[in-house]
Simulated assay, not measured.
Amino acid sequence: MPYALFYQDAKLSKAYPTEADVWTLARKSGLVVDAISEEKSAPRPVLDNDYEIRPCQLEPNEDPAKNKADADREARLEPRLN
């Protein structure tokens, strides 16, 4: 089942093969923040501003595996800041 990033009912990202792939995209986009809860002392990552990662319907001719491969290739080409 493919997953994507949503805000309310609007699909904001391409579809990716797994939920973990969308978390990676959200982290790179600056949409993940660390939250502290009363139950756990260590911070845990959450999506900022009511964004959600959910299962999604594919657009016509959309290929989640290709979307992931394209994102991985782009990530390798981006300059890294130290």
Rank of each mutant, 00 (worst) to 15 (best):
Lys68Met: 06
Arg54Trp: 06
Ser37Arg: 06
Glu38Asp: 13
Asp50Ile: 13
Tyr51Ala: 08
Glu39His: 10
Pro79Asp: 03
Ala69Tyr: 13
Thr18Asp: 07
Val32Ala: 00
Glu38Tyr: 15
Lys11Met: 05
Asp9Gln: 15
Leu58Ser: 09
Glu38Val: 15
Tyr16His: 05
Leu25Gly: 00
Asn61Thr: 10
Cys56Tyr: 01
Val46Phe: 11
Ala69Pro: 07
Asp9Asn: 14
Leu12Val: 03
Arg76Ala: 03
Arg73Trp: 12
Ser13Gln: 02
Ser13Phe: 00
Pro2His: 01
Leu81Glu: 11
Leu25Glu: 00
Leu31Asn: 04
Ala69Met: 12
Ile36Asn: 07
Asp48Leu: 12
Ala75Val: 02
Ser13Val: 06
Pro79Tyr: 00
Glu52Val: 10
Tyr16Trp: 06
Pro17Tyr: 02
Ser41His: 13
Ser37Asn: 07
Val32Glu: 00
Glu62Thr: 02
Trp23Asn: 01
Glu62Cys: 03
Pro64Leu: 05
Asp48Lys: 15
Pro43Arg: 07
Lys40Ser: 13
Lys11Asp: 04
Trp23Ala: 02
Glu19Met: 05
Ser41Phe: 13
Arg44Trp: 03
Ala71Lys: 06
Tyr7Asp: 10
Ile36Trp: 08
Asp50Lys: 15
Ala10His: 09
Asp50Tyr: 13
Asp21Leu: 04
Pro64Phe: 04
Glu74Asp: 14
